[in-house]
Design a protein around this nucleic acid. Structure first.
Lengths: 233, 233
DNA sequence: ATCGGTATGATTTTCGAAAATATGGTCTGG
DNA sequence: CCAGACCATATTTTCGAAAATCATACCGAT
């Protein structure tokens, strides 16, 4: 029996449910499934090749993360977007990210510095390759996520890191929402570089200031270029 | 056909899964299910009268809340407790609760004041009735939760309130853990009264200071009287 | 005695059928 | 023409059997 004949069903987690959760999450973040769109089991069953109950488990998990909206007895839908929600996510991110940056700068060791520098380096490499549409490049998305993750990774609180990760995902969905309408990306490379330098040189106040501006300007860009999408809901 | 013959299966949510999620959550918080204890489906099936998949959905939701630990392919267990986790939960609570109190004091209207005053009044009534073992009284637990909820309810961020609620639950489990070893409750009534007065008089700095002390002293009490339970894990 | 493999029992995970519930349209009486 | 009851259909929710996976004990070879 050759292995190649067996189609691997679990690319990510060990269980199918965890795998589907991951794939659904990515698709919702990338707006492949539109905000507010009903998630019907027949459709999902065909698209993801899993049974009712397995899909249900995945949707329940994503509902707890705030990416899916569970309407009891009336199924699930992709979590809607709104100006209010964007403001809440942005404010919460600032509150938590600022705290975690401070703690990481306070506690970060050599490994932390290396992680910050190397993830930024990888990010810049990818940006040089295709500077026009970074959000459409899956590799850029991963590298961008990993750089910001590295910045706060030395904070010492798994609890706050988990909360931060959920908020990051919810914010990334808004970035995707506006990506198609944004004329050209602003100078993110420079911002990331400045944040890295402030962090490595242990200048906490500056790093905090740059991170807050980074988060808020991203949010402002969404309002500016995708504001019309936030009212329809 | 008489209604009395039908046993109501859904006391809380509309779906059985939501109901089981709620009951399991309460039981884990009250330490009726011990930290680290394996959650085997056979046992849960008998205890809660639901099928594998329904239980699985409930456990998945609680895993996302941090009350259950999902070990892929090896089932679920009640989330373990540890000094580290207690410190993380406490710090995260302080960070968020402080922010929400400030916002509520800033934004709270008449209804907010009424909610704060009336929930405190109810709490004190219940305390007078049985001042010895408040945590064993389900009514006190509910009233206590509602008072603290009322304090932050005017903050304007459903996102942060949801995060706060999860952290509150995780902290309450630690309180239950130490309840059996604590000699006598400290003067919580006085602390709550002072917090209420600071909030209603819009003294944000004082309210923040009192809330932080309240949260940290609760946590310290757990370490003091249930520290031995935190090392075993 | 130790290691590696393997059979066995226990447990979790997944599936699709069946039950429960919601939705939408039709009919009837006012 | 409208409101409300009723039926038919679409969809979700729940169930227990079946498949997959893990843990353990046993065995034989080195």
């Amino acid at each position: 029996m050759s292995d190649s004949a067996i189609r691997p069903r679990k690319e990510f987690g060990k269980t199918i449910a965890a795998d589907i959760t991951h794939r659904l999450r990515e698709e919702i973040i990338a707006c492949g499934l539109a905000p507010g769109e009903p998630l019907r089991f027949d459709v999902l069953r065909e698209r993801f090749g899993a049974s009712f109950t397995t899909l249900r488990e995945a949707l329940t998990a994503l509902a707890a993360e705030g990416l899916v909206d569970a309407q009891e007895q009336r199924g699930f839908r992709v979590a809607p977007v709104s100006r209010q929600d964007l403001v809440e996510v942005t404010d919460a991110r600032v509150l938590i990210e600022v705290e975690l940056i401070r703690r990481s700068i306070e506690r970060g060791d050599d490994d932390w510095e290396i992680a910050v520098i190397s993830t930024l380096h990888r990010l810049k490499r990818i940006e040089q390759r295709d500077p026009e549409h970074p959000l459409r490049d899956p590799e850029w998305k991963i590298a961008h996520r990993q750089f910001h993750q590295a910045l706060v990774s030395a904070c010492g609180s798994a609890t706050l890191l988990a909360i931060r990760a959920e908020l990051f995902d919810r914010a990334e969905r808004y970035r995707h929402l506006s990506a198609n309408f944004r004329p050209r990306p602003r100078d993110k490379a420079g911002e990331h570089q400045a944040i890295m330098q402030a962090a490595i040189s242990r200048n906490a106040d500056l790093a905090v200031q740059l991170i807050e501006a980074h988060i808020r300007s991203t949010s402002d860009n969404v309002t500016k270029y995708a504001g019309h999408l936030l009212d329809a809901e």
